[in-house]
Nucleic acid binder design. Structure first.
Length: 567
DNA sequence: GCCGTTTTCGGCCCGACTGTTTTCAGTCG
């Protein structure tokens, strides 16, 4: 996937143009960057299939930007960008990562002090040179220095699965204030994005001051970045930034709509409002000075002639058109989920017994779980060989009698060897209810053939964490995903939505492609302890982001239908 | 640089907070 790289380069061009005070072009480049970043298809495959014409079909991409993308795909660089960079050799990315530093300030500091990097900036601050420049002062120096130490942390996005407990703790603290009339988490958390940069919380109250004062003093708050009557920002000890917005109850809907985003979705919706002669802001939908909708999101979208898209779809990747045509899909719901198809126990690298896991899932309302331990050649602690696997099958039969009300399926997470064969014999796999197969080695090679070979094995039901990505740690291995989808369809193999927080694999884009190709999907938490049962929530969110309906997921089947499907 | 069932030219989403200013530019979301 080249999309992220392309987006970054275009954004850099935008920044450089902004530095030079060029009008409007920066906006165009950044808009194009945003569109490419949220594209469901790889730009290089678009280019391969349809050439320059295909690139120009991307919203925000015209002749000039298309040519620059083409140049990058062919040569690995963009001459225009290299030239611009030579004239302004500034590490914009690094410098603007500092709180309160934007391109204009970077420009000023370069012109006046030849500041090119964070190191230069640090030196200039130490020499007290910054404060002598118009627009800067002693306080700016202080602020910059302070935020430099946070830069590394802030640039990192956190997996959503790890954000939930932190967020729910904050919400709980806020709910205890009697002044809080209504509260919601907005932003990327509400949209259930795989990773979260910062957390947005919306509160309705008649008494903003009390809410703001308490919030900025909550436990876990390390630093107050900004504090005002309607908006405050803090950084938690965990490094996460939390923004809180306080508004009166009568504009709750428009505020929630606005603060949920995404930015691309918000801009697109505002433009629809403009076309109808309205103005949309967080304060409501206006006709002239008259408010015509503000209490609920549904009301606003209705007045704009569209359905209200579920938050998970709000990325401007087709949901707006679908909402206008009243053709939004009915997304899968938590209550549709009957089972978890990827669970570990003490038998391999988990921390709880099978019985404990089953009881935890039963308590959470599940009808079945599949115990899927690591197998054979995998060097992970206590991987199961054929003998232990068969022993576990017998053991599970016993536990099934001890824990009524939930059905434990025998399975495994079999290792796909380099040649595409499983590292447990078919004779054994045949005796299991559900077989998840996954790649655990050879991350640097193209694994398309290997996975297709595995899918053609009739004993393999699900391909686990299909792209091998680890958030913030490992890039996905190279795959021809179109070929994977074809093979999944013809071999009737499901692809996993592994929602262990550091995996989130498949991700949004690939899920949507699988849904479009009518390939079955299976959510698996990859739970290694009873505390991991809750990861299902982000798995469902991820499935919804990929436009999954009930019918796209194995987990929504009854146990009878699932077993039939597996056979 | 991009875009258009009002436009192929003339516009580009909107508002809060901060630090520096004496009324606002820059940044952020």
């Amino acid at each position: 996937m080249k999309n992220k790289q392309v987006a970054k380069l275009l954004r850099e061009i935008g920044d450089l143009l902004e530095l030079r005070d060029v009008k409007f072009k920066p906006y165009a480049y950044k808009k194009a960057a945003m569109a490419i970043e949220s594209l469901s298809k790889d730009v290089s495959s678009i280019y391969k299939e349809e050439g320059l014409k295909g690139l120009k079909k991307i919203s925000g991409v015209g002749q000039s930007i298309a040519e620059k993308i083409e140049e990058f795909l062919k040569t690995g660089k963009i001459k225009y960008l290299e030239k611009e960079k030579k004239e302004l050799p500034v590490d914009i990315d690094e410098l603007t990562a500092i709180e309160g530093m934007g391109v204009k300030k970077v420009q000023k500091l370069y012109k006046k002090l030849k500041v090119k990097s964070v190191a230069d900036l640090k030196k200039a601050i130490k020499q007290k040179k910054i404060r002598r420049i118009a627009g800067f002062g002693e306080k700016s120096e202080e602020r910059m220095l302070e935020s430099m130490s946070f830069v590394k942390k802030t640039k990192k996005r956190m997996p959503i699965g790890y954000i939930f407990p932190i967020v729910s703790d904050l919400v709980k603290q806020l709910k205890q204030l009697k002044q809080v009339q209504k509260i919601d988490v907005a932003g990327s958390v509400r949209r259930m994005k795989e990773t979260v940069g910062d957390v947005d919380i919306l509160v309705a109250t008649k008494n903003p001051k009390v809410v703001m004062d308490s919030f900025t003093k909550f436990k876990g708050v390390k630093r107050v970045i900004a504090k005002g009557a309607t908006r405050s920002s803090v950084r938690l000890e965990t490094g996460i930034q939390v923004d809180i917005r306080v508004i009166p109850l009568n504009i709750y809907g428009s505020a929630l709509q606005y603060f949920t985003g995404s930015k691309a979705h918000s801009i697109a919706v505002r433009k629809i409002a403009m076309k109808k002669g309205y103005k949309l802001s967080e304060y409501g939908l206006f006709k002239g000075k008259k408010v015509i909708a503000s209490r609920t999101e549904e009301e606003i979208y209705r007045k704009l002639g569209m359905q209200c898209p579920p938050p998970e779809l709000r990325e401007d990747t087709g949901e707006i058109e679908a909402a206008q045509k009243k053709k939004l899909p009915t997304l899968v719901n938590p209550k549709d989920i009957k089972g978890d198809l990827h669970v570990h126990s003490k038998w391999s690298d988990g921390t709880n017994t099978i019985k404990e896991m089953a009881q935890a899932y039963k308590k959470a309302g599940y009808k079945y779980i599949a115990i899927t331990e690591h197998t054979g050649s995998l060097k992970i602690a206590k991987a199961l060989d054929s003998k232990r696997l068969l022993k576990q099958v017998a053991e599970i039969k016993k536990i099934n009698r001890q824990v009524p009300g939930i059905r434990i399926l025998s399975g495994c997470e079999v290792n796909i060897k380099a040649d595409g064969n499983p590292d447990i014999s078919d004779k054994i796999l045949k005796q299991l209810d559900i077989v998840v197969a996954a790649v655990h080695s050879g991350f640097r090679s193209n694994n398309t053939k290997r996975i297709i070979k595995a899918m053609e094995n009739p004993n393999i039901d699900i391909i686990g964490h299909p792209t091998g990505v680890l958030i913030g740690k490992r890039a996905p291995y190279s795959l021809n995903f179109d070929n994977i989808l074809d093979a999944a369809k013809s071999s009737k193999t499901a692809l996993e939505i592994n929602c262990f927080p550091t995996r989130m694999d498949l991700g949004t884009f690939h899920i949507k492609e699988a849904v479009d190709a009518k390939v079955m999907l299976a959510i698996g938490t990859d739970a290694h302890s009873v505390d991991h049962v809750r990861f299902m929530a982000s798995g469902i969110g991820l499935a919804r982001r990929g436009w999954c309906s009930k019918g796209n997921l194995l987990n929504t089947m009854t146990i009878e239908r699932l077993k039939k499907w597996a056979r």
